[in-house]
Design a protein around this nucleic acid. Structure first.
Lengths: 337, 337
DNA sequence: AAAGGCCGTGTAAGCGTTTGCACAGACGGC
DNA sequence: GCCGTCTGTGCAAACGCTTACACGGCCTTT
């Protein structure tokens, strides 16, 4: 191993050029008040010494770390990883780095994660949990740095957020199914105790039923599967309820149900129609392909991050509740209307 | 918004208790040399003040940030996100945070990413690129902090790494196919210019052919698709070559080929056998399900991170080239032997 | 009873930047 | 020729912590 050259500091540069630290700092930070000739000399020395500013020291002195925190349920879930990709790309564009934390949607872990991120002095946080318990809210409120929700919602619009209009999306999808004569439509959610499921998806579904004059049946709402395997078990429950159509909150779960039915001799879409809601690759990999609500996942992340940069920059937002447009994609798992 | 209480510092705690900074620092850092009664008083004050150590200041003073960098091609790819999950879980266990950067396997971006991470004074780096160009290697060599490769390999075992024995895995898979009489077996790679493909997967494939006394035909090696859509196009090329079996490096690509063939009236596995190599959910979602090499993705990430903790801790590694065991999973896309 | 150790604590020097303030010199206006 | 402005630069404090070193007191040991 070559001799470990100690990293050059701003001091080394200053000394080499014969100016003060302040001047070097100014050219490094693009401050205008430096004579061109001085600037050139400094730049030359920086290059020769291979000087790289120490972000930690800079963070201490300036109280800005140019680092944000991302707290999410699980990177492994394609929906969230696509959001993250959007966040990360915009973050990079604005020179921020992202500290990632998986919480598995566990609220205690979310609190710990946020606390930890604050300890690291992040300049802002993107939160992707689907739940937002009181402790988490409290933590966020007292954070002292801006937080924006991506693909998630808070009660009373208490936090800046970007997502789609889940109520309308689920209402529309359900309505279309109803229009094709379905009476027993299953709604498959991730959980009964999170706002996005309970206050949005479910509400949209219920509205559609109400408009169609069909009684809501709690038996047709399922919410205990988060993985493909668990989806198989849940699919059996659906089958026992004699549903003829399914609206699912997640693609893997939807494929799981699709496969289960087909493996048991059902024809899709003849015997069962399915529509899912994330439009990940899982929905085009299945046979038949899955009709889906098409959320602009990448954009949700990107826009959320863009909002965060503004907030971190002290700018006021004219609109803190952004709803991005979504589309409905019709594929083989539904009978074209 | 409530009055923005300035965060308490170690100084506030010291003053409140009537001890010196050093003592507070000692109790915060679990140093033994503090009388129990003093420790209790300090702890009480910390609690009352809601004091949280500032990690940035700590990083400056101690020259350790308890932060690592993860540079990866794309979070959105399930293979990498699973590795990342392993990394992240172990990192959390050892109190490290992970800074994530996507490079899309672009070598320039990888260099920039690493440079940036070093600027942020990370204590170590997990690198997941499949390529490792000279500039990237140079950057890593001069990093001054430990770097370990996860699911990747460097020429001459120049860097600590954890993965599986790709050569043997691909050789075995190909051999099994040959044993079933296939003469024209396609090998589908991600690229012809990265070590993992060229020096490992391809070599395993070639060995199998050689043992079987079959001439290697470059026409049967495909490497231009990285996405599902591109996979469809490439599938047409495979079909034109009249292959009867396929070994694919990635599940999404494999499913793409599978679907293409079936959509064109072929029967799988009767007319075409396919085996893939990541065993992500994509391989159980397809119909038929895909036979696959089963890499312990999560473990690769976890073990890599564990190695990194040791390295960051100044420990010597007895073994820097870790090959985790893999299994072969036989599913519907191959004819059971 | 003197010498040596250990324990618990304080002192203060960093760590590598940013940034408010001061100030020297050049320049223009009157 | 004096004064007021700018420009460009330096000075030094501050950011919030860690940590080497020193030291006073008390307990052992011989």
């Amino acid at each position: 191993m070559a001799e470990q050259k100690k990293n050059a500091t701003i001091y080394d540069v200053a000394e080499k050029v014969g100016v003060s630290l302040a001047t070097v700092s100014r050219v490094v930070n693009g401050n205008d008040n430096v004579r061109q000739s001085t600037r050139d000399k400094v730049l030359k020395a920086i290059d020769e010494l291979g000087y790289q500013p120490n972000a930690v020291a800079r963070g201490l002195a300036s109280k800005k770390t140019t680092t944000i925190g991302v707290v999410m349920p699980d990177v492994t879930n394609v929906f969230y990883s696509e959001l993250t990709r959007g966040v990360d790309d915009i973050a990079q564009m604005y020179q921020y780095d992202a500290l990632l934390t998986n919480t598995d949607d566990d609220q205690d872990r979310a609190v710990t994660a946020i606390k930890n991120l604050l300890t690291k002095q992040v300049d802002g946080i993107i939160y992707m949990g689907t739940k937002l318990s009181a402790p988490v809210m409290a933590m966020i409120q007292s954070a002292g740095v801006p937080v924006v929700l991506a693909g998630s919602v808070a009660e009373n619009e208490a936090l800046p957020s970007v997502n789609i209009d889940y109520v309308t999306a689920f209402e529309t999808v359900t309505t279309k199914l109803l229009a094709r004569g379905h009476q027993r439509i299953a709604l498959v959610l991730g959980s009964r105790d999170r706002a996005i499921d309970q206050d949005f998806r479910l509400v949209g579904y219920q509205r559609a039923l109400q408009e169609a004059g069909i009684d809501y049946d709690d038996q047709l709402v399922f919410a205990k599967a988060r993985t493909y395997e668990a989806g198989q078990l849940q699919a059996a429950d659906l089958m026992a309820q004699d549903v003829t159509a399914v609206v699912a909150y997640d693609d893997e779960i939807a494929v799981s149900i699709l496969n289960y039915y087909q493996d048991h001799g059902y024809k899709v879409p003849e015997d069962l129609e399915i529509v899912t809601s994330n439009n990940t690759n899982f929905s085009i990999v299945s046979r038949p392909e899955l009709s889906s609500i098409n959320q602009p996942k990448y954009d949700i992340g990107a826009v959320a991050m863009r909002m965060l940069t503004k907030l971190m920059n002290g700018e006021e937002l004219t609109d803190t509740q952004i709803k991005l447009p979504y589309t409905l994609i019709s594929r083989g798992s539904t009978r074209t209307k």
